[in-house]
Write a protein that binds this DNA or RNA. Structure first.
Length: 282
DNA sequence: CATGGGTCCTGAGTGC
DNA sequence: TGCACTCAGGACCCAT
C-alpha cells in the first residue's frame, strides 16, 4: 500500500522518466479513475499537447505539473505507474494511458481500482482531500510543540489520529504501526493522553522510519513497485507490521495483532504498554 | 465538530 | 479439488 515513502519513490522514478515528455494522446479505459464524473473525454482532450514539467508529491498525492494544469493522482491501495514503449503488451488492470510524442507511454495500472485522478487548474481550486492535508512529516515548521497541539485536541486512539491525513500527511497503516512501536506507544492510547515527551519521541520515530523507508526504496508488502517496476526493500526491516506471532526483535515477546480504528494493528505488548489509568505508589 | 462504521474493488488466503 | 467465505485498507460518505 503506497504510503509516503512509496509515493516518494514513485515520484523520483517518474521525475527521471517523464519530465520533459509531451503528451500526444490520453486514453481512459476505466472512467471511475477520473474523479469528476462524465469528464473523461474532457480529461483526455485537455491533456493532449501538455508537457510534463515537474513531478511533485504532497502527502500520498502525486502532482504532475503541466502548466497551466496539474494532474493530481492518488494511488490508494495498489495504483502503479510504468513507462513503456507503446508497442509493449498491455498488462491486465491497466486503466489509463498517457501516450507521449516520442513513442513511449505512461501506463496506470490498478487492480483494486481505488486510485483517483483529478485534472485541475494551477490557479485552483485543488481537490478537497489535497487541500485539507496536514503538514508534511519533514516540514521544518513541524516540531514537537506543533505536533503536540494537533494531537492533544483529539480523543480518538493515537493510531486513528495518525492515519488522519488532515492531522499529518503521508502515514498509512504500515508506518503508523512501525512508528508507534519505535516510540513505545500503544496504538489504542487516547491521543490527548500522550505526553509532550512521548510526542517528541513519536515525531522522531515517524521521521526516522519514513526516511529509512524512503532510502530503502519503500516497502513492497503486496504489490508496490516504482516507475521502473522495481520493488522496495524496507519490508525486511519492518518490526511489527505483518509480523503477528513472530518474536519482537527487541524483547522476544510475540507480536500481537488487534483491530484499531478499523485497521489491522500490530503491536508488541511488552514494548508498547497500554496507557496506565493511574500510577499507584511503590 | 469529532468519531466510528460502511463502502468501493479484486485477489489471496482459509476452512470445510 | 472446489467452492464459499473472509480479509486487506485509503479516503470518502454518512449516521450518531
Amino acid at each position: 500500500m503506497p504510503e509516503l515513502p512509496e509515493v516518494e519513490n514513485v515520484r523520483r522514478s517518474l521525475e527521471a522518466l517523464v519530465v520533459g515528455r509531451t503528451i500526444a494522446q490520453v486514453e481512459v479505459r476505466l472512467p471511475r479513475i477520473v474523479r469528476t464524473p462524465g469528464d473523461t473525454r474532457r480529461f483526455e482532450a485537455e491533456l493532449a499537447g501538455a508537457t510534463i514539467q515537474r513531478v511533485d508529491r504532497r502527502g500520498k498525492y502525486l502532482l504532475f505539473s503541466m502548466p497551466p494544469l496539474t494532474l493530481v493522482s492518488h494511488l490508494r491501495m495498489e495504483g502503479q505507474y510504468r513507462l513503456v514503449e507503446q508497442t509493449e503488451p498491455v498488462e491486465p488492470h491497466t486503466h489509463v494511458f498517457f501516450r507521449f510524442t516520442d513513442g513511449t507511454e505512461l501506463r496506470y495500472r490498478d487492480v483494486r481500482q481505488f486510485g483517483t485522478m483529478d485534472l485541475v487548474s494551477q490557479a485552483g481550486p485543488w481537490p478537497e482531500g489535497l487541500e485539507k492535508l496536514g503538514p508534511e512529516p519533514f516540514d521544518p515548521d513541524l516540531n514537537e510543540q506543533t505536533l503536540y497541539a494537533r494531537i492533544h485536541s483529539r480523543t480518538a486512539p493515537i493510531k486513528a489520529v495518525l492515519l488522519d491525513q488532515t492531522c499529518l500527511a503521508g502515514l498509512g497503516n504500515i508506518y503508523v504501526d512501525e512508528a508507534l512501536y519505535e516510540a513505545g506507544i500503544h496504538p489504542e492510547t487516547h491521543a490527548n493522553r500522550i505526553t509532550r515527551v512521548k510526542v517528541k519521541l513519536l515525531l522522531a520515530a515517524i521521521r526516522d522510519i519514513l526516511q529509512r523507508a524512503i532510502d530503502a526504496g519503500g516497502s513492497s508488502v503486496k504489490s508496490y513497485v516504482n516507475g521502473y517496476g522495481r520493488h522496495g526493500g524496507f519490508q525486511i526491516e519492518l518490526n511489527v507490521y505483518s509480523r503477528d506471532g513472530e518474536a519482537c526483535r527487541r524483547c522476544g515477546t510475540p507480536i500481537e495483532k488487534l483491530k484499531v480504528a478499523g485497521r489491522g494493528t500490530h503491536v508488541c505488548p511488552h514494548c508498547q504498554k497500554r496507557e496506565r489509568t493511574r500510577r499507584r505508589g511503590a
